[in-house]
């Protein structure tokens, strides 16, 4: 019975044929009037999109810094080296043969053979303790310094295992722990950037949500009237969603402008500073793809803020 009635209702109260043109016109009208509204109140709207811009700028700068560190550390990872101390019984020829063998391996970048005599010479030149120690025999072993190419930690461990098992190798000293530590620190920074991005995205969400809420409040009477004239919820929401869209777009563009300003002011200083350490400075810049992501996320987060505000406050605007 109730079902039948609902069906009859639907038939009798059929929505008029969807007029795509009218729908499109309304979208255009809402987009335009929302934009005009922002332009007509430049100061109050600037406050909103500036806050959005700053909230977006922070994670963007962190992201650029992280990218830069990642590029640098790729070079640093090659600095990890493995020192193989050879048996005392190993002759110079045998040692050099082993060094050549290692040099031929693909996972190895450079190999240096240090003979007993070379080790002794460098020891003495560094410490000048010859007279004090009065050693009549050279106690130092010959060694081979292996610098592996950049590779995953697992591959590196496999290489180390292989080197440890070599017959002529007495002892092995690995200078790789710091690389692992560096990687951990980078992972930590990356997590911090992610958390920060989420926190600041939430801030954007709240800012836009609150701005839209105020806008709904101020137009409450108007909304009540057009609802009585047969406006659907979608129709009522549309202008506010466009408002959110424009806030997102202008906030994203402003973040990019701020980034450009920072780049213009600090790029030279950064270049000079890092060059003094022999490092190349990263460009404080976004490529087209990153710029697109910045704009898109700004718009999406703002739209979400607007949608949440509408969801919370649209019911308040039902006619009374």
């Amino acid at each position: 019975m109730a079902k039948n009635r609902a069906a009859t209702n639907r038939r009798r109260n059929r929505a008029p044929k969807v007029d795509i043109k009218g729908w499109y016109r309304h979208h255009l009208m809402c987009a335009r009037s929302a934009l005009m509204g922002l332009i007509r109140q430049p100061i109050s709207s600037a406050l909103t999109w500036l806050v959005i811009a700053i909230a977006l700028l922070l994670p963007t700068l962190f992201y650029i810094a992280l990218q830069a560190i990642n590029t640098q550390t790729q070079a640093w990872q090659e600095g990890g080296q493995i020192t193989l101390y050879l048996n005392n019984t190993t002759t110079i020829d045998q040692g050099q043969a082993l060094a050549n063998e290692l040099r031929a391996r693909p996972e190895v970048s450079t190999v240096e053979y240090i003979s007993k005599q070379q080790a002794w010479d460098s020891f003495r030149s560094v410490l000048s303790l010859q007279s004090a120690l009065e050693l009549d025999e050279n106690p130092l072993p010959a060694s081979i310094v292996v610098v592996p190419i950049e590779q995953s930690m697992a591959d590196l461990e496999a290489l180390i295992l292989m080197l440890t098992d070599l017959a002529d190798v007495e002892d092995i000293q690995i200078d790789l722990a710091w690389i692992e530590r560096l990687n951990n620190v980078l992972d930590l920074i990356e997590s911090i950037v992610q958390v920060l991005s989420i926190i600041l995205a939430t801030a954007v969400l709240l800012i836009v949500g609150n701005t839209i809420r105020l806008s709904i409040e101020s137009r409450k009477a108007e909304i009540q009237i057009i609802k009585l004239l047969g406006a659907t919820d979608n129709y009522v929401r549309r202008p506010f969603l466009y408002l959110g869209f424009w806030y997102g777009l202008s906030g994203g563009l402003a973040a990019w402008l701020l980034l450009t300003l920072i780049s213009l002011n600090f790029q030279n200083q950064l270049d000079t500073f890092l060059a003094s350490y022999g490092l190349t400075a990263p460009a404080i810049w976004l490529n087209v793809r990153e710029f697109g992501i910045l704009l898109l996320s700004s718009i999406l987060v703002s739209l979400m803020g607007a949608r949440i505000a509408l969801w919370r406050h649209l019911k308040d605007t039902d006619p009374q």
Binding site: N13, K227, T232, Y235
Partner: peptide, 29 residues
């Protein structure tokens, strides 16, 4: 012929388009 009780929010919007309402307090924009 429409049972007002069974209308959802969207139905109400389309239903109101059939009506011409004059309010005591005008309700103008």
């Amino acid at each position: 012929g429409i049972q007002l009780k069974t209308m959802n929010r969207r139905d109400i919007a389309f239903y109101r388009r059939k009506l011409g309402i004059v309010h005591q307090d005008h309700q103008l924009l």
